[in-house]
């Protein structure tokens, strides 16, 4: 280390010139930072892109679970539901848990950055990551021969938005309230359980009878079923999935506003 340099702070260097930065610039800076961090983090990429890609290819090519045909048309909506859960819930909760541990929320809350902008930057960065996921997964699915029902695209976008909100609210609820290690363990465990038994990888029709009834009431099952109905079958999923996802948005969000801590 060559730190014996005599730093010269010229008189006037620190003359106060306080003031808040421009809102657009702050939002851009924060969104860009959070997005870069999400796309640079190996463990998060594993959850948000690599595992969904592996499942997309694996479940399409290997007839281990009975889905409809063509297989890719049934697998893709479920993998998209998984990608939303990975970003909105697991990845969000873990990063929030460790961001709190490392004091970044307090650090940023002490700047001129308004609190709503802190939240907006996080939401926007989540949206950007989801867009990247949809592009990558959609392109690979297309290579595998995916042909979604175009009539269902409108509904599936509505379901995606609501699903991202529901998982995001659950992610903030978990990541904002307990210690980082507990967040890490719970977020991964819930992700794994919902993937296998929550109506994502295994359709409700292939699950044991008791579980099949419950799955539609979980955010994972509601999103996966809704997307499959809209994109694979081309049928309207009805109000069911929307109501379930709305419930899983409002309740955790209401609790999270009381439990979320900066550190």
């Amino acid at each position: 280390m060559t730190e014996h340099v005599q730093p010269r702070f010229a008189v006037g260097t620190f003359t106060p010139a306080p003031g808040r930065g421009r809102l657009g610039r702050m939002l851009l800076a924060q969104t860009a930072t959070e997005t870069k961090l999400a796309l640079r983090n190996g463990e998060q990429l594993l959850l948000t892109l690599i595992i969904p890609l592996a499942l997309l290819v694996g479940l399409t090519e290997l007839p281990i679970i009975d889905v409809g045909t063509p297989r890719v048309d049934w697998v893709t909506p479920r993998v998209i539901a998984l990608a939303i859960m990975s970003t909105g819930f697991t990845s969000q909760a873990i990063s929030l848990g460790f961001d709190r541990r490392y004091g970044v929320l307090k650090r940023l809350a002490a700047t001129a950055l308004p609190r709503w902008l802190l939240v907006a930057g996080r939401v926007l960065s989540g949206v950007l990551v989801i867009v990247v996921q949809l592009i990558v997964l959609g392109a690979v699915a297309a290579l595998l021969g995916w042909s979604p029902q175009l009539a269902g695209v409108g509904e599936s976008i509505a379901l995606l938005v609501l699903g991202a909100l529901a998982f995001g609210a659950l992610g903030v609820l978990l990541g904002g309230s307990v210690r980082a290690e507990i967040v890490l363990a719970v977020a991964n465990a819930v992700w794994f359980v919902l993937l296998l038994a929550g109506g994502i990888a295994v359709p409700a029709s292939s699950l044991p009878a008791g579980l099949a009834d419950v799955v539609g009431l979980l955010p994972s099952g509601a999103l996966a079923n809704g997307l499959t109905d809209a994109l694979a079958a081309g049928t309207a999923p009805g109000p069911g999935p929307y109501l379930v996802l709305a419930f899983w948005t409002v309740l955790p969000a209401a609790v999270a506003t009381r439990t979320t801590r900066l550190t």
Binding site: A17, P18, G19, R20, G21, R22, R25, M26, L28, A29, Q30, T33, K36, L37, R40, N41, F98, D99, R101, Y102, G103, V104, L105, K106, R107, L108, A110, T111, A112, L113
Partner: peptide
Amino acid sequence: PQGGGAYPGVRAGEMLRLVAACAAHP
């Protein structure tokens, strides 16, 4: 703050630029 504060994965330059972006005349 005591013990600092930054994103665990953020680079030093990125963090300072982010905080600088919050000020009018950094």
